[in-house]
Amino acid sequence: MDATDPRGLVGELALRQLDAAYNLARWLLGNDADAGDAVHDAFVRALQSAHTYAGGNARAWWLTIVRHCCFARLKERSDGRRFVAIDQLAADLGEAAVQRILPKSAADGPEQGAASAQERARLHRQLHELPPEYREVLVLREIEELSYREIAEMLSIPIGTVMSRLSRGRERLLHALRADAARSGERP
């Protein structure tokens, strides 16, 4: 490797994987302000420790830093609230609903858009309400598409634990979604 500044490479990597970082932070912390701050912290820290990056899976390395910064922020939060505030959720849903309806053609009635928004709201709510250790592996595996090995390395846990958390998390999420759907009168 020549003497090119490793910080340039790390910066480029982090920016390319910024959505992944933000998504993880947002799901771990539950609100936009903390997620943005945690990702910013992580970016600074990644640049500082760029020289320690020794190859291997770059995305997992970066997300590990993001995760550490999230937990540092969680620790700082004295009130320790775990669930997303209602306002925040409503804000998400409004945005999601708009995003959902906008790109659709006129052929889709508003009702269909509303049902989808409602369904997404349900998914968001139930994923948020999962215990953090399950939520975390679900986000990493299902949304960010990391392998078992990558997740195990990121979380410093055995692969077997990744597997059991993932199974349990999926089970609980499916169960919660079914119960939620039943409560709200069998809407899809």
């Binding site: 340039g8 910024l18 933000y22 998504n23 970016f43 640049l47």
Partner: peptide
Amino acid sequence: AARFAAPAALRARLAATAPARP
């Protein structure tokens, strides 16, 4: 649409602080 995307302001802020990209 269910994935949280990084806000553009955050991206711009970080890109501005990033060292020259090779």
